[in-house]
Structures are given as C-alpha cells and as structure tokens.
C-alpha cells in the first residue's frame, strides 16, 4: 500500500510539473502583450517599467525558475489587471462561492443520481426505469449553459420563483446548483443502474436468494454495497464536469467565484490569473483522482488486501 501510494504521488508530482511548465511556456509564447488592454496606448518607457516591475525583463529560464519555486510556496504572482493583487489572494477571495456551489451540486447530484439509478435497476424494464433513463440521457446531453439559460428564463425571469442572479442567500444558490448538478446526477444515475443490474444478476445474489434472504435484505445488505463501490470512480468525471460547469454557470448567474474570474481573465489576457487558476484546476483534478483510488482501496476489501501484499 505504502509503495503504491508513493508511486501514485510521484506520478502526481510529475503530472503537475508538466502542467505548470506547459502553462508557463504557453503563456510566454502567447501572442499579444499582457499590457495591451491597459486602457489604450502606453509609452515604451511605461512598458519597460511595468516589465521590470513584474520581472518580465529577466531571461525566460530565470522567470521559469522563479515561477516554479513561487508556485510551490503558494505564490502565483501578481495580476496584470488588478494592480498589485496577488493571484493567490484573488483566488482565495473567490473560492468560497465556487466551493459552496460545487459541493452542493456534487453531493445533491450524487445522491439523487444514486437513488435514480437504483430505482431504475430494481424496477428494471418498467416505466420507472424508462423515465429515469430519459432523465439521464437528457442530463448528459443538454449542455449545462443551455439548461441554465432555460432555468433562468422560466423559473426566474418569467415565473419569478427564484432570483435571476447574484450570490446573496441560500435561495440564490438554488438555480445554479440545479444547473450544475444535472450532469453529475445523470452520469451517476447511469453508472449506478448498470452496476446495480450487474450485481443483481450475479451468482452471489442468487445464492443469497437461495438462502432465503428477503428481497429488501438482498437490495440493501448484499447488492447496494457492491454496486456503490465502483460508483466512486465516476467522481473523476464528475469533478471535471463541475469545473467545466462552474466556468459557464457562474457567468450566467453572476456568481462571484473563480470560474467567473477565470473567464474574465481569459478575455483580458490576465496571464498570471489564468495560470494560477489552471494550476488550481489541475491540482484539484489530480487530487480527486488520487482520492478516488485510495477510497476504492479502502472500501473494497479485495483491493485493500492485494495492495497490502505488494
């Protein structure tokens, strides 16, 4: 287990180093100067001053070294657009709403998805199964921003049940959460259904029946646990969809989170913010994947033991 963990962490660090390096060099060769957007023309003197101030006059390898060492100390540089604002501070200021939104969407989406998938499997080939399948296909197919637009237009603009936008009270979080959770919910439901059907068709469920175990006990004592374990693996794709989702959902509902800030920074060429947020996303993703693997090992006795033997 320890050996496996160390191996995984080494991979993680290599991956992150590659991402950070790639981000850095891509930003370097990017067309356009970061100061293009600073409200009109600036004189060469001003430009030189700014470049010196941000360390852009140093040779690229030096800049690279400075950046890497900075990143590992939690320093992502300073924003080009908001003078002297450290990127790490900007991210910290904005991460609250994003985290809240993401956590809400993840938890509610996963729970609903698991319930939906379970019902579909238990009531296999009934209208309940079909309707839960339809919900899942729609959830997977309709892009989150289209869905968000529809929710906003009908539930907020037209019928005024929920606020149109902003992030002020729990009620403001309802529409963005729904819009963001629909995809994770759908993949979770599909995965759960497939797993549950497979488990219900397995020999050990038949043996449990042969023992005289009641249907309810079979569902909850035997089947559920075995079907739930592999569902952990969809946490990876779910995280990705949450990250993708926050970028558009936060814009649509004017949520002051990192997603909205990221899109703004893309449109204003605010390179340090782009780099910082990209790295944050990458770290988040890599960590989630690692957690998924470890969790899988913890919950599934088969993997726990084989890991221990190594």
């Amino acid at each position: 287990m320890a050996k496996y963990l160390i191996q995984r962490i080494i991979y993680m660090i290599i991956t992150l180093l590659i991402i950070i390096s790639a981000t850095f060099f891509l930003m370097k060769i990017m067309p356009g100067s970061p100061f293009n957007n600073l409200g009109g023309k600036i004189t060469p003197e001003q430009q030189a001053f700014l470049e010196e101030k941000y360390g852009l006059d140093e040779p690229v390898p030096v800049q690279y070294f400075n950046y890497i060492t900075g990143v590992f100390q939690g320093d992502f540089g300073v924003s080009f657009q908001y003078e002297n604002r450290p990127v790490s501070q900007m991210i910290l200021d904005r991460i609250g709403p994003s985290a809240e939104l993401g956590a809400q969407a993840l938890i509610i989406g996963a729970i609903l998805g698991i319930i939906l998938g379970m019902i579909a499997a238990i009531k296999h080939n009934t209208w309940l199964d079909y309707s839960s399948n339809i919900i899942a296909v729609i959830g997977i197919s309709i892009p989150s921003f289209v869905f968000a637009g529809l929710l906003q237009y009908y539930l907020a603009v037209k019928w005024q049940i929920f606020p149109v936008s902003f992030w002020e009270s729990p009620i403001h979080t309802v529409l963005p959460t729904i819009a963001l959770m629909i995809f994770p919910m759908a993949i979770c439901a599909r995965f759960m259904r497939t797993e549950m059907l497979e488990v219900l068709g397995s020999d050990y469920i038949e043996l449990a029946r042969a023992k005289g175990v009641s249907n309810n006990s079979i569902m909850f004592k035997h089947a559920l646990r075995n079907a739930l374990i592999p569902v952990i693996t969809v946490l990876g794709p779910m995280t990705v969809s949450l990250m993708t989702g926050t970028l558009v959902i936060e814009q649509i509902f004017a949520v002051p989170g990192i997603g909205e800030q990221f899109v703004t920074s893309i449109n204003t060429n605010d390179y340090p913010v782009i780099m910082g947020t990209t790295i944050l996303f990458a770290v988040l993703f890599v960590v989630v994947i690692l957690i998924v693997d470890l969790l899988y090992g913890l919950i599934d006795p088969r993997i726990r033991i084989t890991g221990g033997k190594e």
Partner: peptide, 11 residues
C-alpha cells in the same frame, strides 16, 4: 452453486 469464485458476496 457451480462457480465458487462468483457465488460468495465479495464484500
């Protein structure tokens, strides 16, 4: 049952 490898609940 026929196949002891699959007829016990793995968890």
């Amino acid at each position: 049952f026929q196949d002891p490898m699959t007829s016990l609940n793995p968890t």
